[in-house]
């Protein structure tokens, strides 16, 4: 095999000539910048990179990347990207989506792409609101939320996107937020490196319709006390002085404790590669919304056969056994007769 050198690129090479049209101050800008700046480091080619999206504010993302891109229909990006990724294993396929796109209209496609483990990097920008349709509650909005469509408060119990992804047995699940470029890039880099479906929830501020939704946990002064960093192999610990931690109780459920009261050895050590999704799921349940200490980082990173690769293997196997397909033979594969 010959090694083809990847040309050196800069952020500029990955930015399209289209004017970015999100509202000024939108969290999407910082996510776009993080991605555009990360791409030159990933050792990939623009022409082999495709961004696929559905509908919503986040879904405009592909227009701003100087790669191949497909802005499709509401909720369907994982399905469309599945066809692309499985038929073109040579491509890097990213899906950019929002909470409504991924978890409401497109919930079915998301969970099936995850369980099949299609080689997709799915970035879900969660702003807990419908932005593009001007401010209705979303499937991740907190209960009782007052919006244009819920003047008396929403009745829906919200999805926890990480729980949904782990419930679907996604092989890579992570959470990050739009206020920390370095952390975002680390999560995106890990998602890209993972073979199979990667799901990254990005807490993203909609400064027009849901401003400050995550400020309580992602604000610079709040992070130490409110974000629980997950580091593989390390005890799960947070707080300004590292004084809080997570333990697993006798009945298996997780709880936040003062480290001093249980001792450091009692803390749960984070294991991304734990095969059973139960522990990662329990971690996702530590917080039911951005008003509580919330785990951030990689919840789960396990290996399972990638769908497109398995599909290709079946084709290869058939061709190794039967050759590359003879049309005349095909037409005669049932009983035939000859008239002279």
């Amino acid at each position: 095999m010959t090694t083809v050198e990847i040309p050196l690129t800069t952020r500029k090479d990955w930015s399209s000539d289209q004017e970015v049209k999100w509202c000024p101050g939108c969290g999407d800008y910082s996510i776009l910048a993080a991605v555009q700046m990360l791409m030159p480091d990933l050792g990939v080619r623009r022409e082999k990179t495709v961004f696929v999206s559905g509908i919503g504010c986040a879904a405009r993302f592909p227009y701003y990347m100087n790669t191949y891109g497909l802005h499709s229909i509401h909720g369907r990006a994982p399905a469309i990207a599945t066809g692309l990724a499985t038929s073109r294993p040579d491509l890097d396929v990213w899906v950019v989506s929002g909470d409504g796109d991924s978890l409401s209209i497109g919930g079915n496609h998301l969970i099936h792409a995850l369980r099949r483990n299609v080689n997709l990097n799915i970035l879900m920008f969660n702003n807990q609101i419908y932005g593009l349709t001007k401010g209705q509650y979303s499937p991740t909005s907190e209960e009782g939320k007052i919006t244009k469509s819920t003047p008396f408060g929403s009745l829906d119990h919200p999805f926890n996107p990480i729980s949904v992804a782990i419930g679907a047995e996604a092989t890579f699940v992570a959470r990050t937020h739009d206020m920390d470029r370095h952390h975002m890039q680390e999560m995106f880099r890990r998602a890209h490196a993972h073979k199979g479906a990667s799901f990254v929830e990005v807490y993203q501020n909609c400064n027009v319709f849901n401003d400050g939704a995550f400020e309580g946990i992602t604000g610079k002064d709040n992070r130490a006390e409110m974000l629980i960093p997950l580091t593989h192999g390390e005890p799960i610990r947070f707080g300004t002085n590292g004084d809080k931690g997570v333990i697993q109780g006798a009945d298996g459920h997780l709880e936040i404790v003062e480290v001093a009261s249980v001792g450091e050895d009692a803390l749960l050590r984070h294991d991304e590669h734990h095969d059973d999704p139960g522990l990662a799921f329990a971690l996702s349940r530590l917080s039911s919304g951005p008003s509580m200490p919330t785990p951030i980082g990689v919840f789960r990173d396990v290996a399972r056969p990638e769908y497109g690769e398995s599909m290709t293997a079946q084709v290869d196997e058939a061709q190794a056994k039967r050759g590359t397909g003879d049309l005349d033979q095909l037409l005669r594969s049932n009983s035939f007769w000859t008239v002279d």
């Binding site: 399905a79 469309i80 599945t82 692309l84 073109r88 491509l91 099936h112 599909m311 084709v315 196997e317």
Partner: peptide
């Protein structure tokens, strides 16, 4: 008939059936 290089994908629903086919078409299938 996979020896012909045929990829068949039993999708999660009718929408994903056509969606995946369209994605594959974008990719040159």
């Amino acid at each position: 008939r996979k020896e012909f290089g045929v990829r068949t994908f039993q999708a999660e629903d009718e929408i994903a059936g056509i969606g995946s086919a369209l994605g594959a078409a974008f990719g040159g299938s």
